[in-house]
């Protein structure tokens, strides 16, 4: 009994100690909050809520769109951004034939070794090769881009919140900062080598607006507006980030339906078994 009392006495003292310590921090924090100007955030915008063919539990890829997106990546983004987790062979999922993929890969130069001298060289790509990086290494990438290394795009739409919308919004969002913004946040003015974009968390990014209307000629005749190209490349990058996305959702349905069925059975079975011992109403 004595021991129990002492355990609880110690506990009460320890508890009060923690509470006093943290409330002391609270008092100081509250005093600081009351006397100091809070550090404001730059007001950046949430990505636009666009609609995508692969949205929702029944979503599917729009292969035409992915093919257009590939073309945008190929002719615009690939100049600076790698796509290192995607292999040429994966492009068959976009509806290309084996021969088309082979030809596409062969048109790319990938790092190789000269079979006679062993020196590093380049060779035409094979379907098993991965998209080559535009720079041999990070140092070269930094040197060519004013120290801002262009990130790999393979996983970009998963590496940002609401990624598909974010990528599309960012690409469409370039433009000079508004006068009101600059008045309220003079620090938001783009510095040298930076470009204003309301969707980028600190409003200024090193990448200049990459897309211009008509820059790409789509094979299916779609007009290459900035909006069209932005959406198409965002859709393509959603596919590169998760090629199994549609398969995942399609696998999910039979699993859910089966589980629902099994759970209903389990419920009825449980009810039957318990009926015997439940009090009669």
């Amino acid at each position: 009994m004595l021991k129990l009392i002492s355990v609880r006495l110690v506990a009460i003292l320890v508890g009060l100690g923690f509470a006093v310590a943290v409330l002391w921090a609270f008092v100081i924090g509250a005093y600081n909050a009351a006397t100091e100007e809070p550090a404001g955030h730059l007001p950046y915008e949430k990505p636009m809520d666009l609609s995508w063919s692969f949205d929702g539990p029944f979503g599917k890829w729009d292969q035409q769109q992915l093919q257009r997106g590939l073309k945008v990546y190929d002719e615009v983004c690939a100049a600076c951004h790698s796509l290192k987790f995607v292999a040429f062979r994966d492009l068959e999922q976009l509806g290309y034939t084996e021969g088309q993929v082979k030809a596409y890969a062969a048109a790319k130069q990938v790092p190789g070794i000269d079979p006679n001298t062993g020196e590093a060289t380049t060779r035409p790509g094979l379907p098993t090769d991965y998209f080559p990086s535009p720079y041999p290494n990070n140092v070269a990438a930094a040197a060519a881009n004013n120290n801002a290394i262009p990130p790999d795009l393979s996983l970009m739409t998963k590496a940002r919140g609401d990624g598909t919308n974010y990528v599309a919004s960012l690409l469409m969002g370039y433009g000079p900062p508004s006068a009101e913004l600059l008045e309220e946040h003079p620090e938001a003015a783009p510095g040298p080598g930076l470009h204003h974009n309301p969707y980028f968390p600190n409003l200024n990014l090193a990448m200049a607006a990459p897309l211009n209307a008509g820059q790409v000629t789509f094979d299916d005749g779609t007009e290459a507006t900035v909006e069209q190209m932005s959406k198409d490349v965002a859709a393509f990058l959603t596919w590169t980030a998760e090629p199994t996305l549609v398969k995942r959702k399609q696998t999910g349905w039979p699993v859910m339906i089966f589980l629902l069925f099994a759970t209903v059975l389990a419920y009825m079975s449980k009810k039957q078994i318990w009926a015997a011992v439940k009090p009669k109403k």
Binding site: A11, I12, V14, G15, L16, F18, A19, V22, L23, F26
Partner: peptide, 16 residues
Amino acid sequence: MMSQIATAYYFLHFLV
């Protein structure tokens, strides 16, 4: 500040 109040209560609840 919210977490500080909640933390104080957490310890007070169990220990006091």
